[in-house]
Design a protein around this nucleic acid. Structure first.
Lengths: 138, 138
DNA sequence: TAGCAAGATGCGAAAGCTTCTCAGTTGTCT
DNA sequence: AGACAACTGAGAAGCTTTCGCATCTTGCTA
């Protein structure tokens, strides 16, 4: 199960790695910052350093287990890699994140890159707005 | 001319502000980091502090004179606000930036936001890839 | 199952970008 | 010119993220 994913990544199965992966899997929110993960660990009584959280998340990223996103909040957020690419809608009030995929946009992006002689490696589309809940609250 | 833009922003016309605006206007590159602007000032013999550069750029941003972008490089880059919205293609090798606009993508974005009950405030689409020049260089 | 070497960890220090503080300076308005 | 608010420079400080290193674990081997 969990452990296998860690092994497959060529990493030793250690308590920090198991715990961190568990938090990412069980968290209600799909997008957590390193700080979020760290605080969750502390809450659970796990004595794991922040540096380790960063190290582990970076290794998981390298192994393709998680994706790192840079929204405009100043800190990176991490999410479990579901395998399928998707973009994000972020609420500027409550930071809620909604994922979406749109094939039309994907196609246009490829076309535009090709048009400018670029070989796409990655792309990031983030729409910032106010979600229904926050709009209602005024 | 320049000065008027600064006045219109409700700011006093000072040497740092004139110089910084001038650099943004005259720079060959459209996207400069605060550090880039600062170095340019030093080169020109202007004794302006980095803190001032950040302050001024932030004020210009607030006034709508410049736009701040957060690419995945870890630092913000600033560009003169041309008024019309556009997205970016960034070369991951040489950091070259190409701007583009695509109405199809714009439309799809609005549709997607509406579909999820979001009121769009802003959005950022960045395509990362390798540009022709860098691809040739291997 | 004991022992070992490579790999992980935790802590504090440090780096990199950006903002803040504050005393001194400058622009603007009269 | 004078007064006052706004602005600046320099360094300190804040934040997120990474590094260095002594210590501890994991996973393999005998």
């Amino acid at each position: 199960m969990d452990n296998q994913q860690i092994k497959d990544a060529g990493l030793k199965v250690t308590r920090p790695r198991e715990k961190i992966l568990g938090i990412l899997e069980r968290s209600g929110r799909r997008h957590l910052s390193a700080e979020d993960v760290y605080k969750e660990l502390l809450t659970n009584g796990d004595d794991i350093g922040l540096a380790t959280v960063y190290r582990v998340l970076t290794q998981f990223e390298g192994a393709g287990l998680v994706c790192r996103r840079h929204f405009e909040t100043g800190q990176s957020v991490f999410e479990l890699n579901s395998g399928d690419h998707h973009d994000h809608l972020v609420c500027v009030r409550c930071n809620r994140v909604v994922e979406f995929v749109d094939s039309v946009i994907e196609e246009r992006q490829s076309a535009i890159a090709a048009q400018h002689g670029f070989h796409i490696e990655d792309h990031s589309l983030v729409i910032y707005g106010v979600c229904t809940d926050c709009a209602v609250k005024g």
